[in-house]
Amino acid sequence: MLESKLNGAKESPPGTKRTTNIVAKHVWEARYLYILLLPLVAYYVVFHYYPMYGIIIAFKEYSFSKGILGSPWVGLKQFESMFSLPQFIDVLKNTLILAAGRIVIEFPIPIIFALLLNEVRRTLTKRFYQTVFTFPHFLSWVIVSGILINFLSDSGVLNQLLQYVGLPKINLLMEPSSFRGLLFGTSIWKEMGWGTIIYLAAIAGIDPALYEAASIDGANRFQRMLRITWPSIRSTAAVLFILQVGNIMNGAGFDQIFNMYHPGVYEVSDILDTFIYRSTFYEGGSFSFSTAVGVFKSIINCILLIIANLAVKRMGQGGLM
């Protein structure tokens, strides 16, 4: 009875009613999938979308007692005070210099090492290198800073070695002039091996026949690397490049800097994220001000992502969107 009724309803009414019925039917059929989706939606709403609404405190003067809605609107005051802060320009400069440095200095390293590792023929040897190179990725920056501070400190192994061969000590950790270099170097130390994996996976997908054909045509090893291997990982590199540029304001490396810097090197390593954290949680700064700095960061990020995507598309590498 009921079944025939349902079928009848599905066939008879024309136009919009029918499509809504079909949609409703699809939704009803997927009801169990929606149940499965429920926790995920709850998570993203509570911990991602609800905080986005909290962004409005960047345009308010937030106070704990009044809450987000009750706090008074102050327009762009927080942004004005951000730009008028003398430190702000330095912090912004550090953020951009460090993020750009990561792209220029750190970005190519995994590509180079993937190409080198690819030249290692014996599987066991290759696996040994990969095992060693990738391990530090799985350690937190807390641990890595502990390891590297021990190694590089005044009484660390590096300085013991230098002394042993009669060279003067260098204190990389304390010296503002070399601190940025140290940040790049230690980040390469930790992440290089992990970075090669994605490229090695791309290389593994190359048809061996290409190499054979090239050898028959007399291409040497270097030529094959340049003409076959590199072109086949170029699009992977392009995607990673866009992602990194689009994340430039976060890409300065908060986790690392926060665990390695100290007041002696603030001038060269204090970035927006560390600045926000300190001004809020150490110096008791205003929540609204810190949020405004965060909003500023997101806007710059968004602009850069669009530019990077356009640039890569121009270069004929597809792009993300």
Binding site: Y50, P51, M52, G54, I55, F287, S298
Partner: peptide, 18 residues
């Protein structure tokens, strides 16, 4: 909706308040 969260987030303070 999920991909947007990879590009944008509320930032440190709004998440802390949540």
């Amino acid at each position: 909706g999920i991909l947007i969260t990879m590009l944008f987030n509320g930032g440190l303070i709004p998440i802390y308040l949540t």
